[in-house]
Each structure stands twice: as C-alpha cells, then as structure tokens.
Design a protein around this nucleic acid. Structure first.
Length: 591
DNA sequence: AGGACTCGGATACGACTG
DNA sequence: CAGTCGTATCCGAGTCCT
C-alpha cells in the first residue's frame, strides 16, 4: 500500500488503547475497539480526544500531543506521528528554542562522540543506562516502524489484519508483501527514513536520533511479543512446512553433490550484501519455519559436518550465497575417528562401533564418569557382557569419550576438538582461558570446513578483500574460514559478548598478521543500532557479508532447563540479526 | 514403542586470592 | 575470612528414526 495515496486507508492501535482508521476522505473514525456511539455533531470532538488519548498512550507528553493534534488536524495521524517523533529529538527541540522533551525510553548518551569510531565500547554504557529505564507503552505501528519497515508497509499489514494479530504475524505479512511483485497496492518503497522531501537531510537526522530509542524499545518489547510467537510455533497445529532432511547434505557436500541443483532466491533476498545465518538444525518444531520467515522465506540448507570432519554437527544455514562451483578447503580433514586419532585405535574395543563422534558440545564428561567405566570393564576376561558393552557405549556416545588405554576412556582434549572443528591447534589456548572456557567456546563455534565450503564461492568475487559484519562472532570461525580460503579480510566488525572469545579471536588476528582493520569493541548486538551501523558503513565502506550464528541455548535439545525456543533469553537475539541485516540492506539501497 | 541424539544450566563445593 | 573462580555433579524432554 502506498501511504501517500489518499484513496488508501490505514489504522493503528495500541494493545489496549483506542484505535482509529483514517479512510479515504481523511476523516478519522473510530474502528474496532473504539465506540461508535454519540451524536453526529460530537464526532469531531470525539475524534480529537481519541487522537489525543491515542498518542498520549504511545508515551508522548500530553501538552505536546494536544498542540500537535490541533496544529495538524486530528485526521492527519501520520503527520502527527512524524511531528511528535521529530519533536522528541533533543536537537530539534533546542533548535526551536523549546524545552527538550525527554522520552522515557530515549537513553541520554553521547552519540556524537562516535565521530571517529575510536571507541564503540560506549555501547556498554548505553546498555547500562537503558537497563535503568522503565518500559513505555508501545504500539505495533511504532514497533514495526522501529524495526525498519516503512509506515506504508506497516499500515497495509495492520489494516489487513485482525486487531489481535501479533507483531510476528504482521512481520510475516510485510515480508510476504515485500516478496510479492510490486503492485499498486504494495509498491516496493523505500523505508521511512529514505523517502525524499526537500529538507529530507534534516528530517533524516532527526528521525535517526529518535530511531535509536525506538530500536532499543523494539528490542525490549520484542521479547514480550515473541511469547505469542512461541505459543504459535510450539503448537502442534502449527504447519511446520520445513522438514529436517534425514540425509543432511544441504545443497550438496563434496562427496555427495546434488547434480543439477538450482535454487531461486526471492528478489528481496538477493544481495548485496551477502548474508549467512547459522543455528542448530534440531531446534524445536516450527523454529526453523519462523527463522526462514524472518529471513525472506529462504529455504534453510541443513548440513551435517560429519561430511567435513570426524564429528557430527547438524546445523541449518540460511544464506543468499551462490551455490555453484563451491570447493572445499584442502587438505580434507580426517573423516573418521581412526584417522583423526590414530593413537587411540590401539585401545579401541571391537564392540565400540563408533566411526565418528557425535556433536562436539560445550560440556564434557567428568573424571568420575570415566572412572565408573573403568570399573565396569575391569575384571572381565576378554570382552565384557553385552549389557555392560551397551551401557559403556552409550556413555561413550553421550560424552564423546576416546579410548586412551585398556579399559580406560577420556574426554577429547581441547586441541583435538580444535582440529576436528577446523581451527588451528591451540587456537583457544592462552590468554587466561580455562579448560571449561575452551570447551565452551569451541562447542559454540562454527565447523570451519563446512562454513568455508559455503563461503568458497566468494573467493573469485572478492579478490581484493572483503568487508565483514560478523555477529555473534565467537572465536572467529567465519573469519578463519575466509582466511583459509585466501580471501583477504579488509574490514571485520566482530560483535561478540564473551570477552574470552573476543580475546581468542584478537589473538588469532594478531598471530596471523592480518592487514585489514578489526573493530571488535562492540560487544552486544542489541546495541548495534542503525546509527552505529551507518557510522561503521561510513568508516569501512559497505559490508560485503553479514554473517553470524545466533545463540542456540534455547533451541538445542541439550538444554534441559530453558529450551524456550526463539523467544528464549539468548536465542531471541536472532531477531537482532534480522534487524541488523535489514538495516545494512536499507543503507545499501539508499547509497 | 523404544532407542538415539542434542552449539546446556543450576548448584554445591573446594581451591585460590587479597 | 569473605569473595571469586573453576570444577564436578546433578538435572529430562523434544524429536526423529527404526
């Protein structure tokens, strides 16, 4: 829908507040939740008071709302909203000689201090400021606009949906509309900030100022909103259109190519930038459907890393990379336990039929567990009875134990995990990293050879280097894959919350004498706002690749406590990946 | 119906530190 | 001696396959 077309109508409503619709004649009429009662002559006053209460409930100051409604006319709801948003920006208020109207959710930190990009760690203070703020009422309209959708898109979605439609469903609607061919009803339009007016530059700045507050509010409120989504995708009636394939070779792996495979990407998904998203394949039912819907309905590529190394690692990848002419890193790593750990073969009993390890996790078996196994096996001449074999084998499978002596098993060493996951030996060693932290950071990382196989198509496309926005960068699996492919890393912006992982990655960066620029002092993806992304783009140039695997804590079956799905405490950050990707795409469209 | 698999989390406890 | 840190030891369920 074109929001400038007077023949269109749009409405928006608060969760519990009144709602209006503006119809073709530009008159505001109560709709759905609002009362239709009252004398004909009082309609105008009713509309005015409805408008005032509506915008007041959005969180704007009442005196400002009254003034703006009277100034613009209660029927011009979009103009009122824009004016209110602009008024709230401190610079704008100051320029008008008016008092600064502080919005309860607009953190007061110094954005101008980022001029030279010398210190992105200020984001931390932003977060702390934000933590002390009270939540404010938020409309679906504002939230969706804050997520980067245009007013026209949001209006169309809201207007075409039931009042109870959740944010998630509205996002689905908008994504679907974006993917549809442009029509008079759904023209492909620039987002809110990009539409041109004579003083567009000034308005853009004002809106950006406010947008940072909106983004943070959207981030916070989205967690609540996602509860609805959770109910939906955990529901047995949810049509889970994405099935996890039994043969997990994605669009082809080196020894199992899919001859003649071609895929058609939706137009809206085609780069630049290229993007690459990763998470556990065996997520709760429906989670991958939600992920796919949020990422342009691209079909996930499910790949088990057992085709690339001696351990399983079942992961789903959603990306817009070409799939032709992929090539693996050489040399091909060992694909069996016997090849990977030849010294272990001597002690490997015939009844332990494992040829490959299970997924390399963050937790490892304890010494007590291995001691129990030793005691179970001692005292038998030859092979132990079948029930003992079975019990021991189950434990070995669960903890990925290896045989280190007669009747003796042990967990994999961190060095062995590093090699199987494709990292340099001792990649995670040093810097005060404990054994548990090494296991944890490795368990949360990419399998380098798998990712490199997918990224190999970039080698010929970026001979002079690549600019990477690496979210949830961890110990740098993506960058190591690119480096090993021989793709120079021109700029890398690595966002990672774990200090241990950041130190490990920086250590690798320095050890390999990288010639590019590494910016790694942004630690929290939720603080990577549109403003900062724009400053980064100004500094680094456009990003060629947005890559990241969002936290799987609440998706993996290993989590017995908080397998809460995409709205879980950590896994909800997936939506920040989408937000940031959409922002980068928008900036590249505008430039 | 039963087996197999899963980028985990909370808690207690002991070693270490200032 | 209190606080911090690292380790050990517990804790099932969702899902798919056979």
């Amino acid at each position: 829908m074109d929001d400038t077309d007077s023949s269109d109508s749009w409405d928006f409503q608060d969760e519990d507040g009144p709602c209006f619709s503006s119809n073709g004649s530009n008159s505001v009429i109560p709709s759905r939740g609002a009362s239709m009662c009252g004398a004909e002559g009082s309609t105008s006053n009713q509309s005015r008071s409805n408008a005032i209460s509506h915008f007041t409930e959005m969180g704007f100051a009442e005196d400002l709302v009254i003034k703006t409604v009277d100034e613009k006319g209660e029927e011009n709801t979009e103009a009122i909203l824009e004016t209110l948003l602009a008024y709230t920006a401190p610079e704008e208020c100051a320029s008008r000689g008016e008092p600064v109207l502080s919005h309860p959710s607009s953190p007061e930190f110094e954005w101008d201090s980022f001029d030279d990009l010398s210190d992105f760690s200020d984001a931390e203070s932003c977060l702390q400021n934000e933590e002390n703020l009270e939540p404010v009422p938020e409309t679906k309209m504002m939230q969706l606009v804050a997520m980067g959708f245009s007013i026209g898109e949001v209006s169309a979605a809201i207007n075409s949906s039931d009042p109870d439609t959740s944010i998630a469903d509205l996002m689905d609607y908008i994504s679907a509309a974006q993917m549809a061919e442009p029509t008079s009803d759904h023209p492909r339009e620039l987002p809110f900030e990009g539409r041109g007016t004579p003083d567009v530059k000034k308005k853009k700045l004002v809106k950006q100022e406010f947008q940072r507050g909106r983004e943070i509010r959207a981030w916070r409120s989205s967690r609540k909103e996602e509860m609805e989504k959770r109910k939906r995708y955990l529901s047995p009636v949810e049509d889970d259109f994405i099935k996890i394939p039994q043969l997990m070779i994605g669009f082809g792996v080196p020894r199992h190519p899919r001859i003649g495979f071609k895929r058609k990407l939706p137009d809206v998904a085609i780069g630049p930038p290229y993007f690459y998203f990763e998470n556990v394949a065996l997520a709760p039912k429906g989670a991958w459907s939600s992920i796919s819907r949020s990422l342009f309905n691209i079909e996930p590529e499910f790949v088990d890393s057992k085709y690339f190394c001696a351990a399983a690692r079942k992961r789903g990848y959603i990306h817009n990379l070409p799939t032709d002419n992929r090539f693996p890193l050489l040399p091909i790593p060992p694909l069996t336990i016997a090849e990977a750990l030849p010294l272990s073969s001597r002690w490997w009993p015939s009844w332990d039929v494992r040829k490959q390890f299970n997924c390399l996790l963050t937790c490892y078996g304890s010494a007590l567990e291995t001691e129990r196994i030793r005691k179970d096996l001692e005292g038998w001449q030859g092979d132990p009875p079948e029930h003992i074999q079975k019990r021991v084998l189950n434990k070995c499978r669960k903890w990925n134990f290896v045989w280190t002596a007669k009747n003796s098993v042990a967990p994999l060493l961190p060095e062995e995990v590093e090699l199987m996951l494709g990292y340099p030996r001792n990649h995670t060693r040093g810097g005060g990293t404990s054994q548990a932290e090494r296991y944890k950071s490795l368990g949360n990382s990419f399998q380098v050879n798998t990712v490199a196989f997918h990224l190999s198509v970039l080698k010929n496309r970026f001979p002079n280097g690549i600019s990477v926005l690496s979210l949830f960068s961890g110990i740098g699996g993506a960058e190591i894959a690119l480096h090993q492919l021989g793709i120079p890393l021109r700029f890398v912006v690595a966002v990672e919350i774990s200090e241990v992982s950041r130190n490990i990655f920086r250590g690798w960066w320095e050890n390999t004498d990288q010639k590019g620029v590494l910016i790694d002092n942004i630690t929290d993806v939720t603080m990577l706002t549109a403003d900062k992304i724009e400053k980064l783009v100004d500094y680094c140039g456009e990003f060629d690749l947005v890559i990241g695997g969002s936290p799987c804590n609440n998706l993996t079956g290993s989590n017995r406590w908080h397998r809460d799905g995409l709205d879980g405490k950590q896994s909800v950050l997936f939506y920040d990946y989408c937000r940031i990707l959409n922002t980068v795409k928008r900036l590249m469209r505008e430039n």
